[in-house]
């Protein structure tokens, strides 16, 4: 049986990656294979990595406030490349209004600070679009 593969990336200029690293490590402890691509990723970098790594989930960590821009662009590229079966989730500082807009746009979930690892891993397992 293969493991669920999760790409964790930080788009744009935000370089605060402690949270992303903690999440990568914690998801490993939950039995996921986490591909950690690091900071300063463009949307193109992220979607390309997701294709090559054939991941089940893309997880973005954004603390900069540029979440509307990055998620929109990544959703566009995911659509262009036919990644319909890949979950897109995010974490960071996202105001409630924006969160609702992002979900409407097609983001699967946004996790704010204080979310437990269990909540995130349960969400992934329950909402997977691909067979593992």
């Amino acid at each position: 049986m293969r493991k669920i593969r999760v790409l964790i990336a930080k788009p744009g200029l935000d370089g605060h990656d402690r949270g992303a690293k903690v999440l990568a490590r914690s998801l490993m402890d939950e039995g996921f294979e986490v591909i950690y691509t690091g900071i300063h990723q463009t949307a193109e970098d992220i979607v390309r990595s997701a294709i090559e790594e054939d991941v089940d989930v893309i997880g973005l960590s954004i603390l900069s406030g540029a979440h509307m821009y990055h998620f929109r662009r990544i959703l566009e590229l995911m659509k262009e490349n036919g990644l319909n079966d890949v979950l897109l989730i995010g974490g960071g500082i996202v105001p409630e209004d924006d969160k609702n807009k992002l979900i409407e746009m097609g983001v699967d979930a946004i996790f704010n600070p204080g979310t437990s690892i269990k909540e995130i891993s349960d969400f992934i397992r329950k909402n997977l679009r691909r067979r593992v």
């Binding site: 493991k3 990568a24 490590r25 998801l27 490993m28 402890d29 939950e30 039995g31 996921f32 294979e33 986490v34 591909i35 950690y36 691509t37 690091g38 300063h40 990723q41 463009t42 193109e44 970098d45 390309r48 990595s49």
Partner: peptide, 20 residues
């Protein structure tokens, strides 16, 4: 691969960004 959870952190791409 973790001997405890069976999961892994795969981080080799971090250093290869210029190839993207």
């Amino acid at each position: 691969t973790s001997p405890f959870s069976g999961g892994a952190v795969l981080g080799d791409r971090i250093r290869m960004r210029e190839l993207n």
